[in-house]
Computed example of a mutant assay.
Amino acid sequence: MPPPPERPAGLRETKRRQTRLALITAALTLVDERGADRVTVDEISALAEVSPRTFFNYFPTKEDALVGDPLEGSTDLRQQLLAVPAGTPLLDALLTALGPAMRQIQAERALWLLRMRVISAHPQLLPLLIAAAATAEQELAAAVAERLSLPPDHPFPPVAAAVANAALRVAVMRWAADTGGARPLSDHTREAFGIVAAGLAAPVSTIEESDA
């Protein structure tokens, strides 16, 4: 009997992302309900309807599943940044490149709020979160350097990446704190990036109050 035909690469990658997202969601859901110490890999795998062996194909530990970025593998910030037309100011280019990620986060608001709640309740996860953020920031800095044709040791790309990352983090936190969800994440992000673009100039109201 001939072997079954292989799945196209796109379908395999979609299935892989679906499985990864199911494991992240299962881990966050169970830990939110019971606490990290009362949840096992076997229980996470069962809720995601995969085997524990499959779990370890995606994550080395339970903690990595809790911190795992649901966007991983679904967006390529480097390609999106390089695709923005040349001559576009960097902050505008970054906003454009971040567009698909922001739309996905907005669409998966409940999952992201769950993730943030679990991480906030379990400080032991912070080192993993910091490490993941540092890796993402380094990748963004490399993409900025490539876009601007700067050498790898130039100080501008890491500074730009750090500032953009901080602005995005503030935007996400403000978006998450908006219990009504009236303002989309994209609005919060544009607002934060606008403050950076203005050179961190103090708001007019603050200046007027200090002069009074």
Rank of each mutant, 00 (worst) to 15 (best):
T96I: 14
A36P: 02
T19E: 06
L66W: 07
P89Y: 09
D64S: 14
D37N: 04
P70M: 04
E72Q: 12
T54H: 04
A46F: 07
K15A: 13
S45V: 02
P89Q: 10
F56Y: 15
A97Q: 05
N57G: 14
P60G: 08
E63N: 11
L66V: 04
R34P: 01
A48M: 01
G99N: 14
L95F: 13
V31A: 00
D32R: 08
P52N: 03
L98V: 10
L82V: 01
R12E: 12
T25W: 10
A83S: 14
D32N: 15
F56V: 05
L47T: 01
L21M: 09
F56N: 11
K62C: 13
L81I: 03
E43W: 00
T88C: 14
Q80S: 14
D92A: 15
T19H: 11
F59R: 04
K62G: 00
L30E: 03
T88D: 09
D92S: 15
D64E: 15
A101D: 00
L30D: 01
K15E: 14
T14P: 02
L77Y: 10
G99F: 08
P89N: 13
A83N: 05
V84M: 09
L81N: 10
P70E: 02
A26G: 04
A97W: 11
N57H: 14
D92T: 15
L28S: 10
F59A: 05
L90Y: 13
E33M: 00
A86Q: 12
D92Q: 15
T14H: 12
L23Q: 01
P100N: 10
S51L: 00
R17Q: 14
L11H: 07
T40I: 00
A27Y: 00
V31L: 04
D69M: 12
E49N: 06
S74K: 07
Q79G: 15
V41D: 03
T88Y: 07
L21P: 06
P85A: 06
R53S: 15
P100C: 13
F55V: 06
E43D: 06
I44V: 10
T29K: 03
D76R: 03
E49Y: 07
A27R: 01
T54D: 02
R12I: 09
G10S: 12
A22I: 08
R103D: 15
P70G: 00
L28R: 11
P89R: 12
P100T: 00
A101N: 09
L98R: 08
A22C: 04
L90W: 14
I24G: 05
T29F: 03
P60L: 12
P60E: 08
R20M: 14
A27S: 05
A93E: 13
I44C: 03
G68A: 15
L81F: 01
G68C: 13
T75F: 14
Q79V: 02
L23V: 08
M102N: 07
L21D: 06
A65D: 01
D64Q: 13
A65T: 05
G99R: 15
V31T: 01
Q80V: 02
L94V: 13
Q79E: 14
D42W: 04
L77S: 03
A83Y: 11
P100E: 05
T61G: 12
L47Y: 02
G10N: 11
R12Y: 13
Q80P: 10
F59Q: 10
L23I: 06
P85C: 03
E43P: 03
A48V: 05
L91F: 14
D37G: 11
T96M: 15
L11F: 08
Y58T: 03
T61V: 02
E63M: 07
E43C: 06
L28G: 02
A46K: 11
E63C: 07
D42G: 08
